[in-house]
């Protein structure tokens, strides 16, 4: 009985860590309002990327180590929108809209590949993601983009490593419906947008397809015996995850203010996966609340460790903590999953 309510080990450790850091932060007089504002910003940056993992996990396709594939679709959508001078909120919406077809097509191919490599999806997905990111590097160099803010000016050809979105749609979503409560900035528009995405996912799970998708992940043999085409439904979940990942990348870029090309998306999957695992689902099914809790915990750790590290220790400490925490959580979850499956 107690076991059901006890949160998983990583969660406990992280919460303890956060409490310690909070204590230190208060001690060195970091204003609470800046922490809260920072948290909102980080939530907007990362929320949808973490949520994008949910369809695949729930359909039994596993953790999406190939998230970079969706990220690349998002990048494609963004650079094309930028090339044609997208601005403001319209520009932002367009960037997502343009990336969707890319995400659907690549998701379908990726999904088909995953169906063929059952049992070792994670490693195949990781390297497929790496390969696609690196081949896109070639594309970014040779593609005929001409917008002066996007390309290298002297000597080098191709798109810049990072494209600033100032003058395009930087923070267009963030600024939408924004209001202040004292020193705290509440980005209502962004939260609403993310909320709508969450709502769509919720309603999807209440449809026939959604029901079948969850069954495929919950109990594969049951699903197969009861009319679910496992391969097809998993492919659909991969497409959904890829589309969400591309949207998440667009939201990220809008908030951060830069489109990061070339090798930036390589490691995009690991922090998102780690955050989801941190949210601690106890069974096979992952609910939206797990993802949200996970993002909040993960990002809180990061945002608290930055100022504390800067003041007390070495500035690189924050990044080191993040590396260690991220990989530790994933390793723990891998071992736990194998234990549950009876692989050991």
């Amino acid at each position: 009985m107690i076991k059901r309510y006890l949160p998983p080990l990583p969660q406990i450790i992280i919460i303890v860590f956060i409490i310690i850091l909070l204590g230190l932060a208060i001690k060195i007089d970091i204003p609470a309002s800046s922490l809260i504002n920072d948290l909102f910003i980080r939530l907007i940056l990362n929320c949808v990327l973490v949520i994008s993992l949910i369809p695949m996990v729930n359909s039994g396709a596993g953790l999406n180590f190939g998230l970079p594939i969706g990220a690349v679709a998002g990048l494609l959508g963004m650079v094309m929108t930028a090339q044609f001078g997208g601005k403001g909120l319209t520009g932002f919406i367009l960037s997502i809209a343009v990336s969707i077809p890319f995400a659907v097509v690549s998701g379908a191919v990726y999904g088909r590949m995953l169906n063929r490599v059952k049992g070792r999806e994670e490693i195949a997905a990781t390297f497929t993601g790496f390969s696609i990111v690196s081949i896109m590097c070639l594309f970014w160099v040779v593609a005929p983009f001409t917008h002066p803010q996007m390309i290298w000016v002297l000597g080098r050809s191709g798109l810049r490593n990072t494209i600033g979105l100032r003058g395009f749609w930087e923070k267009s979503l963030y600024n939408l419906l924004q209001f202040k409560a004292g020193d705290i900035i509440i980005p209502a528009g962004s939260l609403l947008f993310i909320g709508i995405i969450l709502l769509c996912l919720y309603f999807f799970s209440r449809t026939r397809t959604g029901m079948m998708m969850n069954a495929a992940g919950e109990n594969e043999s049951f699903a197969r015996i009861n009319g679910v085409d496992i391969a097809k439904i998993r492919k659909l979940s991969v497409i959904m995850s890829t589309v969400l990942a591309s949207a998440g990348t667009c939201i990220y870029a809008q908030q951060y203010g830069f489109i990061e090309l070339y090798s930036a998306p390589l490691m995009a999957a690991f922090p998102a996966i780690s955050a989801l695992l941190l949210g601690g689902s106890s069974g096979k099914r992952v609910f939206l609340r797990h993802a949200l809790l996970g993002v909040i915990l993960y990002q809180s750790l990061y945002l608290l460790s930055l100022p504390v590290a800067n003041m007390l220790l070495v500035p690189e400490m924050a990044e080191i903590i993040r590396m260690i925490v991220t990989s530790f959580i994933i390793l723990y979850a891998l071992a736990k999953k194998s234990e549950e499956r009876g692989d050991v």
Binding site: F65, G119, R120, E122, I123, T126, F270, E316, I320, M323, I324, T326, S327, F328, I330, L331, L334, A335, S338, E339, D343, V344
Partner: peptide
Amino acid sequence: RVKGREMIATIIIGILGAGIYQ
């Protein structure tokens, strides 16, 4: 403890190792 998924585990172990090394 993660038989069957050694490869993805070794990649993550590499990241963890790099973090500890740093």
